[in-house]
Amino acid sequence: MIEAALFQGLSWNPITDLQQLFAFQFMVNALEAGTIVAVMAGVTGWFMVLRKQTFAGHTLSVIAFPGAAAAGLAGLPVALGYFSFCGLGALALAGIAGSRRSLSAESAAIGSLQALALGLGFLFVSLYHGVLNGLDSLLFGTFLGITSRQVGVLLAVAVTAVTLVVVAARPLFFASVDADVARARGVPVALLGFGFLLVLGLSVAATSQITGALLVFALLVTPAATAHQLTSRAVLGIALSVAIALGVTWLGLALAYFSVYPVGFYVTSLSFAVYVGVRVGRFIARRRQDVALAPEPA
């Protein structure tokens, strides 16, 4: 019980508080995992928002839930469930997108998939007969009990995903904003769309392990959407998206450590606060600009 003695609660001394944060291996693991996930979610999230695939991303996160529950039921590592189900989900989404139906038919098909995934997840959890008391953490995230091994897996996945996005950055950007012209220039638009969904599936699976399946958006969408609001420069936008995701993850983990509330709540609230702050700020800036540009009354 030495560890219990180490935990002193918030001392309001920034240095001792920071030292506390790094005193426990589980907390170091959580911070490492959070950092890896935030970078990955920041990068892929920026492209997801650009490509207007937020709904597809949300569906992948819902698919992550039955994956984790099924893995728990089968006695397998939860991460395996997340990654395999998100991978399969990405394939299904790519199949739906590839069938070239109308946009409304596509979103209806995605929505049906989403409902099925939630239902399956609930079934798996019920089959587990409550022994799986981690339902809350599957849905809303936890930072407890992340092992060094898990951190290693997350790092490998993140390096793969970010490398793929970086290598394909310009064609992917081209295909995302201007698919017809990109296709005419020989950019493999369909292949990129498929590949991006797979990378998005990896990101969702990784992010789910920190924020839970339902709060993935706190890291995947909100920082990216905020970055799109802040700047129309692509590279700066990706950097901002990553920076915001990192900021809310670190702060969320620290707050969760020192309080009784779950990390998912803090990360979502913080990123939402940043988003609202930026929107309000932009609204005010715009109003000022309009006033400045308005012709003077005669």
Binding site: V166, A169, P171, V177, A182, H228, Q229, S232
Partner: peptide, 22 residues
């Protein structure tokens, strides 16, 4: 809602099909 600069759209015509980052 497309918050991409016009100059970046033009630049895609030049290097949008190139892999890797500049």
């Amino acid at each position: 809602g497309t918050r991409i600069r016009g100059v970046d759209i033009v630049k895609l015509g030049l290097d949008g099909a190139r892999w890797g980052i500049p």
